[in-house]
Amino acid sequence: MSGESATSANSGSPKPPGTGRLGRLLQRSEAARGLSLLSPTLLIMFIGVAVPFGILIVMSFWTQIGFGFDTSPTVANYENFGERPIYGALLKRSLWMSSAATAATVLLCYPMAYFVAFHIHRNKMIWIVLITLPFWTSYLLRVFAWKVVLGYEGVINSALMTLGLIKAPLEFLLYSQSAVVITLAHAWAAFAILPMYVSLEKIDKSLLEAATDLGDGPVRRFLRITLPLSMPGVISASLLIFIPTTGDYITPALLGGPDGAMIGNLIQKQFGAINNWPMGATLSIILMLSIAAIALVFMFVTNFVRKRIS
């Protein structure tokens, strides 16, 4: 069982599994086998995530000079972030808007997920497909669609005016924070429904009957059994929406107006019009750290609350 068997494998006879040097290594170590299965993904992750991330970190300590960089390390960008209130304000606003969008999405989608999980008994798959149907269109298209709905002469304004409920178009609908929150909440709905549906669907129906049997009415039963048992879905839905929406720049760029701009727009400008890549890198990293911190606190709090409820 060495090189010879490998060569004989070449001469037509079928090669038994686990022969050859690599084969033996794979057979010996479970970790090696796991790594080899992961290796294509790991390679892409390394090239696509780890390397750019490293570049970002390094660049955040550089300084922009004209069209070139001063590569001597400095924390000036981070100091700059602390000194100029615009950065902090934009970050705070982004986190706030994204939290609002997350809360709105989860609150609106939970009943939908609940409905499909508990009240649909046949053709559940069709319902799931129907729910995700809007997400077959491009993100940009959905954002534009909301522009049409919320616009100055859009669907809502013209309908309300035709009904005579308002005299002049409502201006807060478009180019505002609420427009961004509404659009984000809709654009990410599928990411909220699916995890929540899965965790609701998994709940053993006899647990609900047991809670009823032990004296709980529908509301109490929901609070004591259904909600805690579906919390994993709620948490993953919240994180799935909160994390990408905080850094989103398309929606605020198209629908936000000056009031609705988010940190993502500023980062984009740093890499574009403003042409200060190191500052853009710094902002990206600060944004990422903030999201990570908030996600950790969120997970810690829900864990704590869950323990307290039970």
Partner: peptide, 12 residues
């Protein structure tokens, strides 16, 4: 009160 076939012990 009922004892269920699957016992229905609350997992959380």
């Amino acid at each position: 009160n009922m004892v269920f076939q699957s016992y229905a012990i609350f997992p959380h």
